[in-house]
């Protein structure tokens, strides 16, 4: 009987009030924390550091949303998820927002009943091979053994690529990125394939990164973005426009350094509307006027987040490429704030 009491106590400890169905915003506010699903660890995108603090590009999105909704970028409960558990965690209401470099696909958006709120990283699947193999194109990979990280769209893309080019391969599915590395380095597979950003991050951690090349072929489109449950459009709007605010902030030159100065008022009405000194945008999505200001102040604008976590100065060392602003020839294009 004593034990069952203990279970009761545990239940009390484990139960957190919250409706999975609708009004996610109210839940998050009453809970005082945002539950955000991330990966179990991918350098640059989401990984806890030595102090247990989550860091990374996806993490920054969570923090921005928390800052916009709750006014505190640290009010986030990070829930590590795997490729298998992420969708159930979101569908069952365990998490409010999934920011786990998830590819936006038709069936996920429709059949699985989720809403992608935007794209925070435009990626594509690539191949990495040791330089010593002398391979210059993915089409020369006939008969190769390929390490793939499972639980993603990469397996399907890979199968399609080899089928369309009518060449053979042996797949070696690997659960985590960390486990794929020794296999690739010891030559248990010739090729490692995952999203190009992941390849760069992986290569950065090698003893001699220069001995490996990333092949020119990008065999798929991988728009990675945060997603929410289908049906709660208010919450979807908040997540979506927080992301847009980060992107727009870079376009208009709002940085974490000058945001205080700019929020005093500028002569650009768009900036004023974003920062809440003009118009009623915050009220339209059920937040206060300074929501976007807090979101940007949390970790900087999109460019700052990118540079800090995965940019060329970091070990991951990614170039902006497709992820530059549309004004610089990239794909980032935030709709107007009005």
């Amino acid at each position: 009987m004593k034990k069952s009491v203990f279970l009761g106590a545990l239940t009390v400890a484990g139960l957190t009030a919250g409706a999975a169905a609708a009004a996610t915003l109210d839940d998050v506010k009453s809970r005082g924390k945002l539950n955000c699903g991330v990966t179990t660890g991918l350098v640059g995108f989401a990984a806890p550091d030595a102090n247990g603090e989550w860091q990374g590009f996806d993490v920054a999105v969570c923090r921005a949303v928390a800052a916009a909704v709750l006014g505190d970028p640290t009010a986030v409960e990070f829930v590590p998820t795997t490729g298998k558990t992420r969708f159930t965690a979101l569908a069952s209401g365990e998490i409010d927002l999934l920011a786990r470099n998830t590819t936006w696909t038709f069936s996920r958006d429709t059949d699985l009943k989720f809403d992608f709120v935007g794209v925070n990283y435009y990626d594509g699947q690539g191949f990495m091979v040791p330089k010593a193999l002398g391979v210059t194109s993915a089409k020369e990979l006939d008969g190769a053994t390929v390490c793939i990280q499972t639980g993603t769209t990469t397996e399907l893309n890979l199968a399609d690529f080899f089928r369309t080019n009518n060449i053979e391969y042996t797949p070696v599915p690997i659960e985590t990125n960390a486990e794929a590395q020794p296999l690739y380095l010891e030559g248990a597979c010739d090729v490692y394939t995952t999203d190009a950003s992941g390849l760069a991050a992986t290569r950065a951690a090698f003893e001699t990164p220069g001995d490996h090349v990333i092949l020119p072929e990008i065999i798929s489109k991988e728009p990675l973005g945060p997603l929410v449950r289908h049906g709660d459009n208010e919450w979807g709007d908040i997540a979506s426009w927080t992301l847009m605010a980060l992107i727009a902030a870079e376009e208009y030159g709002i940085t974490s350094a000058n945001i205080e100065e700019m929020s005093a008022g500028t002569n650009n009405p768009e900036i004023n509307r974003i920062l809440g000194t003009e118009g009623e945008l915050g009220a339209m999505i059920g937040l206060d006027a300074e929501w976007a200001k807090r979101a940007i102040a949390a970790g900087g604008n999109y460019g700052e987040i990118f540079a800090k976590n995965i940019g060329e100065e970091t070990p991951v060392g990614l170039a902006r490429g497709l992820n530059a602003q549309w004004t610089d020839g990239g794909l980032l294009y935030a709709p107007p704030f009005r």
């Binding site: 660890g41 990984a47 558990t85 659960e175 020794p182 951690a205």
Partner: peptide, 25 residues
């Protein structure tokens, strides 16, 4: 295996995924 950070989960997740300790098995 279901993304909880127990002893093995800590090793396979955050520690092996960190830039500092990637490759220590």
């Amino acid at each position: 295996v279901i993304s909880m950070f127990d002893l093995v989960g800590m090793i396979r997740g955050p520690i092996l995924a960190s830039t500092e300790w990637n490759g220590v098995y």
